[in-house]
Nucleic acid binder design. Structure first.
Lengths: 203, 203
DNA sequence: CCTACCGATCGGTAGG
DNA sequence: CCTACCGATCGGTAGG
């Protein structure tokens, strides 16, 4: 997938990567139960039995896919990495970058859903534990740097930011599927404008 | 499920309802492929073969469940039915009622996800066609009745309203699963405040 | 609507 | 990592 995938890796590591990539594609396309180990093996270029040299079973393979591809592992780092001179601009750029990435690969949102439904969010606690502290520290800094309306806590700021990003991608997806022409759909600019106008004190 | 389920219905109609209810429970718990016809039959109190007297197969049963339970069939009517003297208050009450209903039955959000992933949104076009016109007409009326910021079209107002509701339910769900204490989670009040403040002209 | 059953496919394993 | 295979379970059907 990335350039480094085929460089500097042993044959076993390359096969493991190929299984994670093929598993990702199958799980987000058909769901956990709908994806078969046979199709995943075929996607990775091996026979079904070979999977078990790399993963103890379907559950462990899925856990590996979640760790590698779950959108939360993209959203929080991208939020922190976003550039911009003013704090407001950094939020805007972060949201736009995340929405762009999630619209370029529809599987990202699907993986979020599949994990929540078919695994009851079992992996979310671990992900949150790893990713939340940094994101919350960062958003607390933002919270202090701009004039946020007083009833919005740093945590609520983070929650509504994530909610805005997901709402953008999600509503655009299902309204497009439902037949809406894409030029009338609100994009990340409109959603982020509502969000920023909503959280900021009037000037 | 409702009181009328057991009243004024023939035996066949009662069985059909029991199948729709059992199917709903299984589909939202395990996904489309994870739910077995055997478990659904057992939930409805019949044997597996009996299902095919009411539905031609698993797909048709699922389509019936979507038609009866999809959250969009609740969101749009509740939006229109909400009471309130001012337009702003109607939006606020509608959002609160929808969030309350979707948090009382977690399956509603799950069904949205299951249908999008495992059926690629195949039923959404029909639902949208039926429900959108009235909702859009209603929201256009709202749009004219309050001081909305000029760059927000009626369609964008509807899209961001739905997005706000879904963002509320969705972020609360996965943050709670991820271990956040529920008293720090932003609820529908906070989300709707950000939304309303975001769409309204400064006073 | 039940009994009994079909072929197909599932996740996973043994042995090499 | 492949070949060959296991028992279990799947959606669906025939016949009554």
């Amino acid at each position: 997938m990335t350039q480094s995938t085929n460089d500097q890796l042993t044959k076993g590591e390359r096969t493991r990567q190929a299984l994670l990539d093929a598993g990702y594609q199958q799980f987000v396309l058909r769901g956990f139960h709908g994806a078969s180990m046979r199709a995943i093996a075929q996607g990775a270029g091996i026979t079904p039995g070979g999977i078990y040299n790399h993963f103890s079973g379907k559950d462990e393979l899925f856990a590996g896919v979640v760790l590698a591809h779950h959108p939360l592992t993209r959203i929080f780092p991208q939020l922190i990495a976003a550039q911009g001179t003013r704090a407001e601009e950094r939020l805007r750029n972060a949201a736009h970058a995340i929405v762009t990435e999630m619209e370029a690969d529809e599987g990202l949102l699907n993986l979020f859903f599949v994990e929540m439904i078919e695994c009851q969010g079992a992996h979310l606690a671990l992900l949150a534990e790893t990713l939340m502290p940094k994101a919350l520290a960062y958003i607390t800094e933002i919270h202090g740097a701009v004039g946020i309306r007083p009833e919005i806590t740093p945590f609520a700021l983070l929650q509504t930011f994530v909610g805005t990003v997901l709402a953008t991608v999600f509503t655009r997806r299902f309204l497009a599927t439902g037949g809406a022409s894409s030029d009338m759909l609100a994009g990340s600019e409109e959603f982020v404008n509502v969000y920023l106008h909503g959280i900021l004190l009037d000037e």
